[in-house]
């Protein structure tokens, strides 16, 4: 079945430790469902992975409610230490001190993440850690528009992917950068990411059964035989109350 093929592909996406996954969405189609989907996979009973969630957009209870419908209880998981939540909605990073800027907020945040990752990742236990950031544009807002500061932060987060084998999952909005020639944040992110997922509205217009389309670019996709696979794959999706359906375009009317 189509869904199985896609699920298998997704598993491979979510299994790849040490990668950077970038989710890009737009106003018409939110990519948050991908974040929830990946979170659910990481926190499912079969896996023993740990999720470090850095929230800039929504509070804990927002995610708790959504994940409950998907079959995960974030409260119990965080008590067990499998879900670590950093509420960063009130972070303000730059303080003007005597003309010179002292950057503190994101450095501290990185220290927090780094410490958490180090505590979890000991050489004996091979636990995978996933770091999720729910809205990069709000990180930029917190950094008062300094995109280079945000990129420094992300590059530091990326060092954890090689040091302790973390996976880094980032959500960003694509359309807010479409006009500004100056901002290279999006481009830098695309260079940084190993996997880029783009959620867009259906190109052919509205449809009752299809909520949008998903394009996945896997820069280093190598299949089980060590051969290079196709880089780009297209799916369509339908977001349901407690699950998401993925299918190849044309397989639904």
């Amino acid at each position: 079945m189509n869904n199985e093929a896609i699920e298998e592909d997704e598993t491979r996406v979510s299994d790849c430790a040490g990668r950077v996954v970038l989710i890009q969405d737009c106003v018409e189609t939110s990519g948050a469902f991908l974040l929830h989907h990946l979170m659910k996979r990481k926190l499912s009973r079969e896996s023993s992975e740990i999720v470090v969630f850095v929230a800039f957009a929504h509070p804990f209870y927002h995610y708790d409610r959504i994940l409950k419908k998907l079959g995960c209880n974030l409260v119990t998981l965080s008590q067990k230490g499998r879900f670590i939540f950093f509420d960063m909605r009130k972070l303000d990073c730059l303080d003007e001190v005597g003309g010179g800027r002292t950057k503190s907020g994101l450095v501290e945040l990185f220290h927090k993440i780094h410490k958490a990752a180090e505590v979890i990742a000991s050489p004996e236990t091979k636990i995978c850690i996933t770091i999720m950031i729910d809205d990069l544009s709000l990180v930029e807002v917190a950094a008062q528009g300094s995109s280079s500061y945000v990129i420094d932060f992300l590059r530091y987060c990326r060092t954890l992917t090689t040091e302790v084998g973390c996976t880094l999952i980032l959500l960003n909005h694509e359309d807010i950068y479409s006009n500004s020639e100056e901002s290279t944040l999006n481009l830098e992110l695309e260079y940084l990411a190993d996997i880029v997922m783009k959620a867009k509205p259906l190109a052919t217009g509205l449809a009752a059964d299809v909520h949008g389309q998903l394009t996945v670019l896997n820069k280093r996709s190598i299949n089980e035989h060590g051969k290079i696979k196709k880089r780009i794959q297209n799916f369509q999706f339908k977001v349901k109350e407690n699950s998401v359906e993925y299918f190849y375009s044309g397989s639904r009317t």
Partner: peptide
């Protein structure tokens, strides 16, 4: 220059 390019890990225990 990859692991700690800006000295943010100062104080933290670099592996």
């Amino acid at each position: 220059c990859y692991t700690d390019p800006l000295g943010w890990k100062e104080g933290a225990n670099v592996l």
